[in-house]
């Protein structure tokens, strides 16, 4: 069998410089920083809904935003781990969290019925605004995770792209959700979940070319 020339080994060894290993906590800190920055951005641009903290919000407000925050955390953690390749990496937490979020539109459908569901979709005057704003605010997280993946060595590019999109959509929708006083399931279960779906699709196709190595 031919052998790789030892000149390559010599060359790589002579090029060696000390490196700081990529640490999981650094990635987690980066996402946390992006999420906090997004909340501040929402406060600056739209203003948070202070009624949420004075007992005016419905249970659906807390349940929806709590689920979005958890999904954002789980998907972000999966992406952060993907930057360090390893056989045996699984992303079950993020997968189950994403499935869990589907409870919201299903609940809206069950509560409102098919005609009521579609009626709410078409008549909700704030729906599209929340959908677009949630998606747009997710760009901060998407940027942070893309930078992290580019520093790393992701080996599952499509999954990395999809989970980056899910994390971005969930955190974007969560942060904008803190500014949205429309807190019934017909609005939250549709328009605050839709950014996650849109971002996942965009992430699946837009992120892999940016992080390929």
């Amino acid at each position: 069998m031919n052998r790789v020339p030892s000149s390559l080994i010599d060359e790589l060894a002579s090029d060696l410089a000390p490196v700081q290993p990529l640490r999981l906590w650094q990635g987690v800190a980066l996402v946390a920083f992006a999420a906090v920055a997004t909340v501040l951005l929402v406060e600056l641009l739209d203003g948070l809904w202070h009624g949420a903290f004075t007992g005016q919000a419905s249970p659906e407000f807390f349940i929806t935003n709590g689920m979005l925050a958890l999904l954002g955390a789980a998907a972000s953690f999966a992406v952060v781990k993907m930057a360090s390749p390893r056989v045996g990496n699984s992303h079950e937490g993020a997968r189950w969290s994403a499935l869990m979020l589907a409870i919201l539109p299903v609940t809206a459908l069950v509560m409102l019925g098919i005609s009521g569901f579609f009626g709410t979709v078409t008549s909700d005057m704030y729906g599209v605004d929340c959908f677009l704003a949630g998606s747009a605010f997710g760009l901060v997280t998407a940027g942070a995770l893309t930078l992290w993946l580019r520093r790393g060595a992701p080996v599952s590019l499509n999954a990395a792209g999809t989970y980056t999109g899910i994390a971005a959509g969930a955190i974007g929708s969560f942060t904008y959700g803190l500014a949205c006083p429309v807190d019934h399931i017909g609005h939250l279960g549709i328009w605050h979940v839709a950014p996650v779906v849109l971002s996942a699709i965009i992430g699946r196709f837009a992120i892999p070319p940016l992080v390929r190595w």
Binding site: L8, P21, L22, R23, S84, P85, R86, V87, N89, W213
Partner: peptide, 28 residues
């Protein structure tokens, strides 16, 4: 793969096993 190992050596976390890291790069 050896070049990839060189360029991406910072992505190995010393608290994790080495071979699963190398195998993932090799499979990719």
């Amino acid at each position: 793969v050896m070049l990839a190992v060189h360029h991406k050596r910072a992505t190995w976390d010393p608290s994790r096993a080495f071979y699963p890291w190398l195998a993932a790069i090799a499979r990719y």
